[in-house]
Write a protein that binds this DNA or RNA. Structure first.
Length: 128
DNA sequence: CGTGTGACTGACC
DNA sequence: AGGTCAGCCACAC
């Protein structure tokens, strides 16, 4: 289905929205969950092009090493750091401890209960 | 249609 | 523990 490609940002936003507060996910992880095995960079692109209209927990997305991937020159870099700390996520030297804060969807369901949103194939039926 | 670029990643050195 | 490099995908020129 090439339609998935057209709305790739849509499914990525949806997946990012699924990250619970106090947890973080890597770009690669989001990409995989959204259906893009090697689309780590797409996640960054999708978040970058995300309209401010939608409230997206974009700050819960860091790179595989737990480091904030946004350029330090970008104001959003500190913004992300600020938002993470607001959720009790320890941020030191622009990075978080993935061993502690990494999001595990399965485990999360067990602890927080099943998600109340569509996380699968939204791009397939939401297209025109 | 070729090139460069980026909020990436994993393998190597 | 850090720097490099090729692979990755969509998009701007």
């Amino acid at each position: 289905m090439n339609k998935k490609r057209k709305n790739f940002h849509r499914s990525i936003w949806n997946t990012v929205a699924a990250i619970p507060p106090g947890r973080v996910a890597s770009y690669g992880q989001i990409a995989r969950l959204a259906g893009f095995a090697n689309g780590a960079r797409l996640v960054g692109w999708a978040l970058r092009s995300a309209p401010p209209d939608i409230e997206l927990p974009w700050h819960r997305v860091v790179n595989a090493k737990g480091r904030i991937s946004i350029s330090p020159t970008n104001p959003a870099h500190e913004e992300q750091q600020r938002r993470l700390r607001a959720e009790s996520v320890a941020v030191a030297e622009g990075r978080v401890d993935m061993a502690v804060y990494a999001w595990s969807p399965n485990l999360d369901e067990l602890v927080w209960g099943p998600p109340s949103f569509e996380l699968t194939e939204v791009t397939e039926n939401g297209s025109e």
